[in-house]
Design a binder for these strands. Structure first.
Length: 424
RNA sequence: GGAGGGGUACCCAAGGGGCUGAAGGGGCUGGCUUGGAAAGCUAGUAGUUCGCUAAAACGAAGCGGGAGUUCGAAUCUCCUCCCCUCCGCCA
């Protein structure tokens, strides 16, 4: 959440920075007007409450002493109505201010590229060689159907479109990748493994920024408790420490979690309708960090490196892209995307996204740390990154490792897990 | 799903309308004692959020969360969440 004090003190800069996202945020000035009024009311209310508290105490005292209290009661009557009327005004203002702030995205980091959309993202580096085929390479949906390791038709019978059934070695490839990724992050990168709930509540969705603005993207359960299917492990992962004050010595906290993610994909009708690039349900290994503000950007760079290591180990060609202001996710101050090369698209497609939310989610979720024993708690920084999207990794392997006869070679590091070196 | 019992500060716990922003104990910090320590004695120990501040002082809120009754609520009423015990069901 945007810090109202920062907005108050540095209004023009904050609005200018927010507007690099390509939206108008001038309405925040009205919010500041509301905020001013709110603070005035607080002062009035508190003055009245102080009076009331003092007078009420007198009543107790008088009664104990057997004195007459009629005069004092009169005094309180007016006071009472004024307090409740002012409090009602205050609540209205606070609700409105909070709602605006919850719908205001994070301030983009000052060094990120300025741009209006994904065409202006900045490619930082390309790693690995794009495969050259001496035959016409197939898309993964054809490879998958021909090898009978992916079944789209039956999945839509069972559920709906944008679901897939993995079969045989397809299923084992997905499972093997999950294991491989988790092990690498735990054993080599020092993350602590978690298994998280697949259902999250409204408070959690709000803290990480999915709500209130992006409710349409989530699967909401028809349960009066207002629960949602996990849209990314970032939600249960970050919210694990919601409302907590962590000790400085615990930081950075590094978690890795495999979860299945569920998304409505509202607004992407007609896009990526074939194959498993864009599904309502997909598997993801997610990296999560809670870091001190002063080194969160070092932690971000390390996290990016950790994700890249997976692609390097799988020997897949990829590039790293720095997301420009106009393409930046709602809760994030800075994001790197990792894009893997896909022959069927003839270009790179996102396979992972590594971001620093700074104190934005921490503020929404009230997650703090105590810098030293005697200091006041301060908001920490939260980071999250894919490590990686498993379904899209399967796609990348299928397409990049395919052979003329329609079979797929198994990457060296997965041969043990798959117990074969070829899928045919 | 049924029947009970709970949620109070770092931890345990008392308190059931005003003298309680909260007894008592543990822990922690300091002092006395000691050659040093333990023990004992003794003092201190509500963090937090908001408002006002240059900062403090000060004020308001705060006894799981929300709403209500009242001049006044940890205490009474209602709703809700979480935890525990027993029964039923179940992977």
């Amino acid at each position: 959440m945007l810090d109202i004090k920062r907005l108050r003190e540095d209004t023009d800069t904050v609005i200018k920075r927010l507007e690099l996202r390509g939206e108008d945020f001038s309405h925040l000035k009205d919010t500041l007007t509301q905020d001013e009024l709110r603070r005035q009311i607080i002062q009035d209310v508190e003055r009245l409450k102080k009076e009331r508290n003092e007078t009420s105490k007198l009543i107790g005292q008088y009664k104990r002493e057997g004195k007459d209290t009629a005069d004092i009661f009169k005094q309180i009557e007016d006071n009472k109505e004024e307090i409740s009327s002012l409090e009602a005004q205050k609540n209205t203002l606070e609700t409105s201010i909070r709602d605006t702030l919850l719908r205001t995205p994070n301030i983009p980091h000052k060094d990120i590229p300025v741009g209006k959309d994904d065409t202006q993202n900045k490619v930082l580096r390309e790693v690995g060689d794009i495969p050259v085929f001496d035959f016409e390479p197939k898309a993964h949906w054809d490879l998958g159907t021909d090898l009978d390791i992916l079944d789209f038709k039956r999945a839509s019978k069972v559920a709906a479109s944008r679901f897939t059934i993995y079969k045989g070695l397809g299923s084992r490839l997905e499972r093997g990748l999950i294991n491989f990724m988790l092990d690498m992050h735990v054993d080599e990168h020092g993350y602590h493994e978690l298994m998280l709930p697949y259902i999250v509540n409204k408070e959690s969705m709000t803290a990480t920024g999915q709500l209130p603005k992006f409710e349409d993207d989530a699967f909401k359960l028809t349960d009066e408790r207002e629960l949602y299917l996990n849209p990314t492990a970032e939600v249960p992962g970050i919210n694990m420490h919601r409302g907590e004050i962590l000790d400085a010595s615990e930081l950075p906290k590094r978690y890795v979690a495999f979860t299945t993610a569920f998304r409505q994909e509202a607004g992407s009708a007609g896009r990526d309708t074939r194959g498993i690039i864009r599904q309502h349900q997909f598997n993801k290994v997610e990296l999560i960090k809670f870091a001190k503000p002063e080194n969160s950007y070092d932690e971000l760079d390390k996290m990016l490196e950790n994700s890249e290591n997976i692609l390097k180990a799988l020997n897949l060609p990829y590039r790293v892209v720095e997301i420009c202001s106009g393409d930046l996710g709602f809760s994030m101050a800075k994001t790197y995307d990792i894009e893997v090369y896909l022959p069927s698209y003839g270009t790179y497609r996102e396979i992972g996204s590594i971001s620093n939310a700074e104190d934005y989610q921490a503020r929404r979720g009230n997650i703090k740390y105590r810098p030293s024993k005697d200091s006041k708690p301060e908001y920490l920084h939260t980071l999250n990154g894919s490590g990686l999207a498993v379904g899209r990794t399967v796609v990348a392997i299928m397409e990049n490792y395919q052979q003329a006869d329609g079979s797929i070679r198994v990457p060296e590091v997965l041969k043990g897990i798959l117990r074969t070196d070829i899928i045919k």
